[in-house]
């Protein structure tokens, strides 16, 4: 496996990298254009439908609305309590992400850097939890939450806390595994150097390994966040009207008398905007990972 060998002397010269060949440039243009079209098509449908009156949306597709309207963007707040759902989703997803990544960083560090008895068992067991269809442990989990509530008075059922710890474990296994992958690719002489400098293992983790793995941690955080952000099944059982999340709440636009397609689209866009903005910020962070890599 090609791994950075100990050539830590700066070989970087001012020489500009070789200009990419023309074939590469064309491949890049074509492939990325196709991918952009594939990505954009549904997004276009969302945006254009959200600006159409319901009647337009219910008839044959047109690229352009017959009449532009922003009504859907005003109505979304009255059909369902969208703002409440959004806040719930945000609280649940952010908490689950922060906790999940924190727990995963420790576990991944242990697996990547230590050989201890049970290491393999632990990592395989953690992964195996991803293989059980959620539908089956939904009821047992629900029972356990209710029982914990009855015996300790900690209300997990119906509360955000219950959802948070559920989601945090949903993303945990993959987060651990992904982070082990990233940690493994960070040269071990780096932590050794930190240890020699008088840091403990935890110090080495936070001073060396975590900063070097920032891109990986960002990727894992995004994964953990989106897992929590989109989950439908558990949210539909474990929440009530005060804790309901967006993922299930958006279904509220399909009502007994009508399906408000244009409002579904408008609401989806409105709630996704902050997330996309967050991704934009993280994008910079991902690039910042480049410089972090330069420590090597």
């Amino acid at each position: 496996m090609p791994r950075p060998t100990a050539s830590r002397t700066p070989t970087r010269t001012a020489r500009s990298p070789m200009a990419p060949p023309r074939a590469f440039l064309w491949t890049r243009r074509i492939v990325l254009t196709l991918l952009a079209v594939f990505t954009l098509a549904p997004l276009y449908v969302m945006v254009s439908s959200s600006l159409k009156p319901l009647g337009d949306v219910q008839s044959r597709f047109t690229w352009w609305p017959s009449t532009f309207t922003v009504r859907p963007y005003l109505d979304i707040w009255d059909t369902v309590p969208l703002a409440d759902y959004f806040v719930n989703s945000l609280i649940v997803s952010v908490s689950a992400t922060v906790l999940s990544v924190a727990v995963a960083v420790f576990a991944a560090y242990a697996i990547s850097r230590y050989r201890f008895r049970g290491r393999r068992v632990f990592s395989v067991a953690v992964l195996s939890t991803q293989m059980f269809p959620g539908i089956l442990f939904l009821l047992p989990l629900f029972l356990i939450f209710v029982n914990i509530g009855n015996t300790t008075g900690i209300a997990l059922y119906g509360s955000r806390a219950g959802l948070i710890i559920t989601y945090l474990t949903f993303s945990l296994p993959f987060s651990v595994w992904m982070l082990v992958g990233y940690f493994d690719s960070i040269p071990r002489d780096l932590d050794e150097a930190a240890l020699v400098d008088g840091n403990g293992p935890i110090g080495a983790l936070f001073r060396v390994v975590v900063p070097a793995a920032v891109p990986g941690i960002v990727a894992v955080s995004v994964y953990a966040f989106m897992t929590a952000w989109g989950e439908v099944l558990f949210a539909s059982v474990m929440t009530n009207d005060t804790t309901r999340t967006l993922a299930v709440g958006l279904q509220g636009y399909a009502t007994q008398t009508d399906v408000y397609w244009n409002q579904v689209m408008a609401a989806s866009l409105v709630v996704s905007l902050p997330v996309v903005a967050g991704f934009l910020l993280l994008q910079r962070y991902l690039v910042a990972g480049l410089t972090a890599g330069a420590v090597k």
Binding site: T39, P42, L43, M46, V222, M226, W229, G230, E231, V232, L246, A247, V248, L250, Q251, V264, M265, A267, S268, V271, S272, V275, V276, G278, F279
Partner: peptide
Amino acid sequence: VPYALPVYA
């Protein structure tokens, strides 16, 4: 962006 949208949407 596709990843940032709620599944349902």
